[in-house]
Nucleic acid binder design. Structure first.
Length: 620
DNA sequence: GCCAAGACTTGGAAAAATTTTC
DNA sequence: GAAAATTTTTCCAAGTCTTGGC
């Protein structure tokens, strides 16, 4: 897509056609009974559905969150009252046992997993047909993909953090709840049988094709054009163009707020400090929130307890931001900033707003006076892209592709840390790290034996390529060698046993004679011998080359290990998707002859189609 | 100028798909 | 070739910011 065309593309549409949103399938009762006080309970389909929602989170965090359980149970009782006879015994959450339903869900999952390839293929085709029918809309003759096109199914509201309404029942959305936006001359899609649309509008100033209200929060939900659509691509590009403009204003803006720090007007001082935080830390604007939401803050809504001062000039931040993700950071600031903040905090006690004279609207009004269209979030985009570009300069020009990719991912991680994009450490991270570490240790164990087997002269020759080869291996002492040997034996044994088991099973299935039983003791003897001296079977003339290769493999594996551990709680995707100008990546790929597929997956490549044509010297 | 509503972007978790490993 | 690990996609909650009514 052409950049100029996108810039000039006007908002809105003249004609709009689509088949309307898709509705999730109606509930089909399974008849599996939950237990109450140890006894099975027959429930109406409506109540059974709600019970099944809860069974779905039974083993998740929500299942043990008291607020979630309480909200769920209140709504569950209401559904029971409305649909089941008064004889239904359910009164107390503690006496409920959803396990039978949970087990049923697990069985369904198993069945799904065990489906034959044909069944899976049929399922896929079914899904593709739905996408074909509902997944597109035609704007001014252009057929483009929609985003999520299905009306959200009913379920339990999964509010995050300390959300007061988490666990509340989110009822099913009916066509009567839905407003359709469509071209005035286009055929209006048929609502599901027996229903009618809530409303039909022809509003060319908006991009959504359907809207309804979240029954819990009352806020609107929409079906939008997809990320790869011209409309989204256009606004995406304009977002980055706006951020680039900031280059021309940033010096002036910084000068301005530094001067305001010593102003006699409270508003100006507060605004100056807030702007300093936003510029320096890339934190969010921080709109006010209601009591019916989780208590999270951003810059303008920071309270006294979120900030600690430490003389001579350090500020410690600790608060819950968007999605209740904790932000912890300490920064050194200049004296004027420190003294302005000290003065501001003097009269404040915990619970007080730090910037009580400021609001995001006021701050953004000020910003847009400094640069047209400038708002607080532009700083996040600007800082993310600027940081990424400058970090990429560390790419080793003559490095290998993996080394370049490491530099790319490091730059990405730098940005993610700046924006505080976190992810939960995966459940088996520790386990998988330990396994990876063992793998490295086993390689080192083998290398230890190679070194011992190699004549001094040959070792010297290897040392020319692997300088540290002659240094003693501090983590490969006698105890560790013993452990590695043991590990090698165990792994080998397991492999043999597994293989044998598979062979036996296959023979049984095919009705052939199974292999003779394993002589475990014999194998163990052989393996033990090998593990005690892993290079004994090797051709001595090939030892030198093998040692060199193994050394390279070890250092690569060690680097990957560090990389993985450092990144275990950092999410790279959010910054890549939303904050880093894709043209920086495209230019980098071209300059370093790295295929674009190495940095953008299929989805990203389509989304950033508009950025692909820049030259290798393009600068943000 | 303020406030609430509306529209659009950003966000992490979970599910699904794919790749790697044993 | 199954299981495990990793990556990608989906899901929908939760932000930001603009708009419109008074």
């Amino acid at each position: 897509m052409d950049l100029d065309a996108l810039t000039n593309a006007k908002r809105g549409w003249t004609t709009l056609e689509h088949n309307g949103p898709m509705f999730p399938p109606l509930y089909e009762p399974h008849g599996v009974q939950m237990r109450y006080n140890g006894q099975p309970v027959a429930l109406s389909p409506a109540s059974e559905e709600v019970a099944t929602f809860f069974a779905g989170v039974l083993d998740a965090e929500q299942g043990s969150n008291p607020v979630f359980c309480k909200n769920f149970f209140t709504d569950f009782l209401a559904v029971i009252r409305a649909n089941d006879p008064p004889s239904c015994p359910i009164r107390s959450f503690e006496l409920c046992d959803f396990r039978p339903i949970r087990n049923h869900l697990d069985r369904l999952q198993e069945q799904k997993k065990a489906a034959t390839p044909e069944e899976k293929l049929a399922k896929k085709a079914e899904r593709a047909a739905l996408v074909e029918k509902y997944g597109y809309a035609v704007w001014d003759g252009r057929r483009e993909k929609l985003g999520a096109f299905m009306i959200e199914p009913p379920g339990l509201f999964r509010g995050r953090g300390q959300h007061p309404r988490t666990g509340t029942l989110k009822r099913r959305i009916q066509p009567e709840d839905v407003t359709i936006n469509i071209g005035p001359t286009a055929a209006v899609p048929e609502p599901p049988p027996g229903h009618r649309w809530g409303q039909i509008v022809h509003d060319p100033s908006t991009s959504w094709i359907a809207t309804w209200r979240n029954p819990i929060t009352g806020t609107p939900k929409y079906v939008y054009p997809g990320a790869a659509s011209a409309m989204k691509a256009s606004s995406d590009m304009m977002k980055f163009e706006k951020a680039r403009q900031l280059h021309q204003y940033i010096d002036q803006i910084r000068k301005g707020y530094l001067a305001d720090l010593t102003s006699s007007e409270t508003l100006k001082v507060q605004r100056a400090i807030a702007l300093y935080f936003i510029d320096r830390l890339s934190i969010r604007a921080g709109n006010e929130k209601g009591d019916d939401q989780a208590d999270t803050v951003g810059c303008c809504s920071l309270r006294r307890e979120h900030v600690q001062l430490e003389a001579p000039a350090t500020i410690h931040f600790d608060f819950l931001g968007k999605d209740s993700i904790r932000y912890v950071n300490s920064i050194e600031v200049t004296r004027p900033v420190f003294s302005a903040l000290t003065k501001l905090l003097k009269k404040k006690k915990p619970g007080d707003m730090i910037f009580d004279s400021l609001s995001t609207t006021r701050l953004n009004n000020h910003l847009s006076a400094l640069m047209p269209g400038l708002t607080a979030k532009v700083f996040r985009t600007y800082n993310a892209s600027t940081t990424f570009q400058s970090e990429l300069e560390k790419t080793p020009v003559n490095g290998s592709d993996p080394e370049k990719m490491l530099a790319y991912n490091r730059a990405n991680r730098h940005v993610a840390i700046l924006c505080n994009h976190q992810r939960a450490v995966s459940k088996n991270h520790g386990q998988s790290m330990a396994a990876a570490r063992d793998k490295v240790q086993l390689m080192k164990y083998t290398r230890y034996h190679m070194r011992k087997a190699l004549p001094t002269a040959a070792l010297a020759s290897v040392a020319q390529h692997v300088p540290d080869i002659r240094e003693p291996e501090t983590d490969m002492d006698a105890d560790e060698r013993q452990r590695c040997m043991q590990l090698m034996i165990e792994q080998h044994m397991k492999k043999c046993v597994d293989k044998h088991r598979r062979q036996t099973e296959r023979a049984k299935q095919k009705g052939e004679t199974p292999p003779p039983p394993l002589d475990q003791a014999e194998i163990e003897r052989e393996v033990a011998q090998l593990a005690a001296s892993p290079v004994s079977t090797m051709d001595p003339s090939k030892l030198e080359v093998a040692l060199m290769k193994l050394s390279q493999k070890i250092s690569a594996a060690q680097a990957a290990l560090v990389d993985r551990d450092e990144g275990k709680e950092v999410s790279l995707t959010t910054s890549k998707l939303n904050y880093i100008d894709p043209r920086i990546s495209v230019a980098w790929c071209k300059a370093h002859t790295i295929p674009i597929a190495k940095v953008f997956n299929a989805q990203l490549t389509t989304k950033f189609d508009w950025a692909m044509s820049v030259d290798d010297d393009w600068r943000f």
